[in-house]
Design a protein around this nucleic acid. Structure first.
Length: 610
DNA sequence: GTAGGGTTAG
């Protein structure tokens, strides 16, 4: 049986005839004693009202009879249940589900009590579960449809698709979409809304293509969402195509759309195109959001002068900076090392403009204070502010830097008690706080627990912090053991991780192993940098191991890695003592020291090298 | 939930 044939069937019965013919009228009738009279009154027919149905449903117990009454009402000509009625039925079906366990049994119960199981009944049942967010049962009803030989119509399939998306069964949801024979606007709109919510660029593209092919266009709200996903994910070319579609379908291209394109092009590494779009903005003028995107973009690409000239344009237009722009400015000044100005923006601009600092403001200013190493007591954290993940992470970092590890651990505890998805930054800060609080053993225990957590993506920084903290506490062998385990278990490690391990070996006077690790890291595809060479060369100089110093310095030069002046000084001091043995280094030293003749004394090098 | 912003190391 095809549903679409049954939908169009004329429905002639009214509520009165339903009440008369229904085997359940006794409990639905206000007065059962009037049953006989009632059943004789087939006419005149009273039109069904939502209020009437609602009050009857509300007065009925949550059983099969009430459900059947609901189905019968839905059969009436031009009658469609309202939200309230569906809402009441959610409680009824939940109660029935509890009682009958499976959908099949509920349907059997309905059948035995005289309710004819037609496609409409199953569709209504599906809708009740859908509206009640009882997705597993909705899926059960949908499956039941085919076993009753019904082919679901578009509405049923739209609902099922929504249910599958909400159950995070994206592939199955899309199978349902593809299976809809007569797709409607809503079929695509539902799919797009879910896929945009999941920022699934590939599938958004796929469904959008299908939609346009079938002659539908998203509405302006959905268009905005689609564009946001493309621009946010660095697919600005597709974003531009979407703007083309918007224009074709008559949706006006707002300043929001232009702003998304400007920031999108910056994000995807195309500053020229971002500027191009900005210059070609039609039908609307840039606003504070567009200018903020432009300023941030310019700063990201080192075009600081351009960024500040945009700031002037904005001010000359009388556009007042809002909290986002203020935050961008704090961040910008910090990145440029202009800490004083960052602090001034935080202290003065907010006050002068009546702006309230938010989580972004605090994260930026805390980072600024940490980098400047000037911990300003005028910067206090607003207690009224609800702490979010990044702000909490910044705060832990700040408190560790000022040496208040107890407070840092308290922030960690507070964050754990909130509904925050703690990340790599949080756990890194936690380990630093534990180690600084002289609890390295606890830190190692926690480290071992954290690396077993499957839902956290840990980076090299996390592992390095643990290794480095142990080295700093003089726990060299534990640190090296942990590092070796990271290597064997293939945890992410980078040049800093290896350098820290080298430092541990040097400080533990295990120079042989330190040198071996230098070679091993190259084999592992991690190239040593100036800091790595500095660490190992300094260690070898202290051991006065001139042969190894020579070997490694030559490798360092060969690799084109620049050494810092202090290390150069140590090398010169050591090797100059063995003048003749180190004659091959004369040209190296000359290069290091410019024109200064270093053969006589280390003093001159010290002066020239700073 | 139509646009723009924030946090780590040797």
């Amino acid at each position: 049986m095809l549903w679409r044939f049954t939908w169009v069937k004329q429905r002639t019965k009214t509520i009165n005839t339903l009440l008369c013919s229904s085997p359940f009228h006794t409990h639905l009738s206000p007065n059962p004693n009037k049953k006989t009279n009632f059943s004789q009154q087939r006419a005149p027919l009273k039109p069904l009202t939502h209020d009437d149905v609602y009050s009857r449903l509300k007065a009925s117990p949550p059983d099969l009879k009430t459900l059947t009454f609901f189905f019968h009402c839905a059969k009436q000509s031009n009658y469609f249940h309202d939200q309230r009625a569906f809402h009441l039925m959610v409680t009824v079906v939940q109660s029935l589900t509890h009682q009958y366990k499976t959908i099949d049994r509920i349907i059997e119960g309905l059948r035995l009590s005289g309710c004819e199981i037609k496609p409409r009944v199953l569709l209504l049942l599906l809708e009740i579960f859908w509206r009640g967010h009882v997705y597993d049962k909705a899926i059960e009803v949908y499956r039941g449809m085919s076993s009753y030989g019904y082919v679901p119509n578009t509405r049923a399939m739209n609902m099922m698709m929504d249910v599958l998306f909400k159950s995070n069964l994206v592939d199955r949801a899309l199978e349902v979409l593809e299976g809809i024979r007569v797709k409607k606007f809503f079929s695509f709109d539902i799919a797009l809304s879910h896929l945009c919510g999941g920022k699934d660029v590939v599938r958004v593209k796929l469904v959008l293509k299908m939609m346009v092919r079938e002659g539908f266009y998203p509405n302006s709200e959905r268009f905005g969402q689609v564009l946001g996903v493309f621009c946010g994910r660095g697919c600005v070319v597709e974003g531009l195509q979407v703007v083309g579609l918007m224009i074709c379908s008559g949706v006006s291209v707002s300043v929001n759309v232009w702003s998304m394109l400007v920031s999108g092009f910056f994000r995807s590494g195309e500053p020229e195109k971002a500027v191009g779009v900005f210059n070609k903005m039609v039908c609307c003028s840039p606003n504070i959001v567009t200018y903020t995107s432009l300023i941030k973009g310019f700063v990201d690409y080192g075009m600081v002068d351009e960024a500040f000239s945009v700031l002037s344009v904005l001010q000359s237009k009388g556009l007042a900076p809002d909290i986002v722009l203020v935050n961008v400015m704090i961040h910008t000044f910090t990145r440029l090392g202009r800490f004083e100005e960052a602090r001034n923006v935080f202290i003065s601009s907010l006050k002068n403009r009546n702006l309230v600092a938010d989580e972004y403001t605090f994260s930026s200013i805390l980072s600024s204070l940490c980098l400047s190493r000037e911990f300003d007591l005028r910067v206090t954290i607003g207690t009224s502010l609800e702490m979010d993940l990044v702000m909490g992470n910044s705060l832990i970092n700040y408190l560790c830097k000022v040496g208040n590890t107890a407070a840092a651990l308290k922030v960690f505890r507070d964050m754990s008690n909130k509904d925050l998805a703690l990340d790599c930054y949080t756990y890194t800060g936690f380990l630093i706080a534990l180690c600084q609080g002289k609890a390295p053993r606890d830190a190692v225990i926690m480290y071992n627990r954290i690396i077993k957590m499957k839902n956290i993506r840990l980076d090299a920084h996390f592992h390095t912090v643990m290794i480095n903290s142990l080295v700093e506490l003089g726990e060299y062998s534990t640190a090296i053991r942990l590092f070796n385990r990271c290597v064997s278990e293939k945890h992410p490690l980078d040049v800093v991780s290896y350098t820290v391990a080298v430092k541990g070996l040097v400080r533990g006077r295990r120079l042989d192993e330190a040198c071996s690790l230098l070679y091993k890291m190259k084999e592992d595809g991690v190239m040593p940098n100036g800091r790595t060479y500095r660490t190992i060369i300094s260690g070898l100089c202290e051991e006065k191991d001139k042969d190894r110093v020579k070997k490694i310095v030559l490798e360092c030069i060969e690799e084109g890695v620049e050494l810092d002046p202090n290390t150069k000084f140590k090398v010169v001091c050591l090797l100059s003592r063995y003048g003749r043995d180190s004659s091959e280094f004369r040209s190296v030293f000359e290069k290091w020291c410019g024109n200064v003749d270093v053969s006589d004394s280390c003093e001159e090098l010290y002066v020239s090298a700073g």
